[in-house]
């Protein structure tokens, strides 16, 4: 019975407000709200931020569109050959031009890198005569 009386939520003191606020909070609240309202006013809205950017983008779009229209209007029309002609051209290209490759233009006889240097046999004999002693020593080693 005692327990029930003690912890019953209908006890009047339980309905009292146990919270506190910092001193002078409510008296300073009006100023804080007024300040926030005036700072909110000064901040530019989303539309005023987006508007100049949107104007820039749209002017670029207009310039691009005008350029595109001008190119379309003033470029001479090129008659497009039919698919048959295109395939004939490609056949000729493959048949004639591609027959001669880069290899065909290459002259190996003129390439100095592949040339074998010819040595005169007399030059060898002369060399052996003058350096015979060093050749002999080299063979002993």
């Amino acid at each position: 019975m005692y327990m029930k009386e003690k912890f019953n939520i209908d006890q009047p003191h339980l309905r009292e407000n146990p919270y506190k606020v910092p001193q002078g909070y409510f008296s300073s609240l009006q100023d804080a709200v007024s300040e926030k309202i005036s700072s909110e006013k000064k901040q530019p809205g989303t539309w005023s931020v987006v508007k100049p950017q949107l104007a820039l983008v749209s002017s670029f779009a207009v310039i691009f569109l005008m350029g595109y229209v001008a190119v379309r209007l003033f470029t001479p029309t090129v008659t497009v050959t039919s698919d048959k002609n295109i395939s004939a051209e490609s056949e000729y290209f493959e048949g004639n031009f591609m027959e001669t490759s880069f290899i065909d233009f290459y002259d190996s006889a003129k390439d100095s890198l592949l040339k074998e240097e010819q040595v005169d046999p007399n030059e060898i004999v002369e060399y052996l005569n003058t350096n015979a002693s060093s050749v002999y020593i080299a063979s002993l080693e």
Binding site: Q11, L14, P18, Y19, K20
Partner: peptide, 8 residues
């Protein structure tokens, strides 16, 4: 800033 007793 909470000033209540244990029951509160």
């Amino acid at each position: 800033y909470f000033d209540g007793d244990a029951t509160q």
